[in-house]
Simulated scan of single mutants.
Amino acid sequence: MRLYEHQAKAILSSHHIPVPPGRVVETAEGAERAWLDLGGEVMIKAQVLSGGRGKAGAVRRVSTAQEARGVAAELLGISVAGLPVRKLLVEAAVSIAQECYVAILTDATQAAPLVMLSSAGGIEIESLAREHPGSLVRMTIDVLDGLRPYHSRWLLSRAQFPPAAREDMVTLLATLYRIYCEYDARLLEINPLAITEQGELVALDARMIVDDNALARQPRLREWRELNPAEREAERARINYVSLPDAPADEGRPRIGIIGTGAGMAMANMDQVAYFGGQPANFMDVGPGMMTGGARTAMEILLRRNDLDAILVSGYSAGPLEIMARDVVEALAAHPEKRLPVVVRLQGHHDVEARAVLENCTDARLHLADDFDEAARRVVALAGQQEVPT
């Protein structure tokens, strides 16, 4: 789960990490009122779950109430990285002496927290690592020991942080590590972290990604999730569903709805559909809910979409596959108005019984495939692709 900047800053602030005073608004009038409350120079920042806002012109500095209103009206009408801007963060501008970078993230290769620190900040971490390779200092943390003050002092010395700011940074790093652990974060990043002209540390921007699997013990974060009706329906059915936007680079390719058993199988289906010339329209893993009607719900969600050219149901499972087959057949019967071809390939436990259920279905929209490659190739062909790789 990704948090918006203002949400991540609310968590930082509640743990006494300084952030600029600000207001979250949804209208141009709200931005004008926020300027009147804050006064002077303010920053107006689009709130989207994407990086690159500055390059997209979605972070602006304004000096008057009228300017705040006009800029807010402009930003609320744009999209950044394909994401519509519906909220803005209006916050007081800060006098900056130096911009720095700090992050704690989960290093999957080491299965441990990784602290990254640099005395240069304000740009994307990829650019920072490329343009200033020696300035980005890293340390893997033993979860049994945690982040110790001497770890922080070593990092700050190697990163050549200003000596006057180092003890405050030791405190800030300890707090960040505590937040990282308490909130089950996978990434906690402040970029830039400002050292003001008065020598204070202020988090000017913040990113936070939380482990979805830990949300059961994070009630505050669960309340912040923004789920559409289909996502909520999928969650109730214990299936994982992510709709994918129509990519300009894939224009002309048929959009294929995908249902898989397990996250790895779902992603493999997506890759194979793309290889044979289709455009995956979603990620969907019905494995956790397969025994309790998950495949029926998955089919219902996809059949209600109006942007699909075909549906692929392809999986391998140790669960009784005839349940999944019946769900597919019943969902098709409930939607005779949908003329989408549906290709099904099920292998694993009770696949003979599942095949019998599917073969007994007389619905012309249903097509069977015997293996993984054939299923992906056939669904793309049926969706209208004229030439597919062999």
Results as ranks from 00 to 15, higher is better:
154 W>E: 14
155 L>S: 01
155 L>M: 04
155 L>V: 02
155 L>H: 03
155 L>A: 03
155 L>F: 02
156 L>R: 06
156 L>P: 04
156 L>M: 03
156 L>A: 02
157 S>P: 04
157 S>E: 14
157 S>R: 15
158 R>C: 00
158 R>N: 02
158 R>H: 01
158 R>E: 10
159 A>Y: 00
159 A>R: 01
159 A>L: 00
160 Q>N: 05
160 Q>C: 01
160 Q>E: 04
160 Q>T: 02
161 F>I: 00
161 F>S: 00
161 F>W: 01
161 F>Y: 07
162 P>H: 05
162 P>Y: 03
162 P>A: 07
163 P>V: 11
163 P>M: 11
164 A>C: 05
164 A>E: 15
165 A>F: 02
165 A>I: 03
165 A>R: 02
166 R>E: 13
166 R>S: 11
166 R>Q: 15
166 R>G: 06
166 R>I: 03
167 E>T: 11
167 E>V: 11
167 E>P: 08
167 E>Q: 15
168 D>G: 13
168 D>A: 15
168 D>E: 14
169 M>E: 01
170 V>F: 07
170 V>P: 05
170 V>W: 05
170 V>G: 09
171 T>N: 10
171 T>H: 13
171 T>C: 11
172 L>N: 03
172 L>D: 05
172 L>P: 09
172 L>K: 02
172 L>E: 00
173 L>T: 08
173 L>S: 03
173 L>A: 08
174 A>P: 07
174 A>N: 13
174 A>I: 05
174 A>G: 15
174 A>C: 08
175 T>P: 08
176 L>T: 05
176 L>W: 06
176 L>P: 12
176 L>M: 15
176 L>H: 10
177 Y>R: 00
177 Y>N: 04
177 Y>H: 09
177 Y>T: 03
177 Y>C: 00
177 Y>K: 03
177 Y>D: 04
178 R>S: 14
178 R>F: 10
178 R>M: 11
178 R>N: 13
178 R>Y: 07
179 I>W: 10
179 I>S: 12
179 I>F: 08
180 Y>T: 06
180 Y>E: 10
180 Y>C: 10
180 Y>Q: 07
181 C>E: 13
181 C>W: 04
181 C>P: 00
181 C>S: 13
181 C>R: 15
182 E>M: 12
183 Y>P: 12
183 Y>S: 11
184 D>V: 07
184 D>N: 14
184 D>W: 08
185 A>T: 09
185 A>G: 10
185 A>E: 09
185 A>H: 10
185 A>N: 06
186 R>T: 13
186 R>K: 15
186 R>L: 14
186 R>A: 11
186 R>F: 08
186 R>Y: 09
187 L>Y: 06
187 L>N: 09
187 L>R: 06
187 L>D: 03
188 L>N: 04
188 L>S: 04
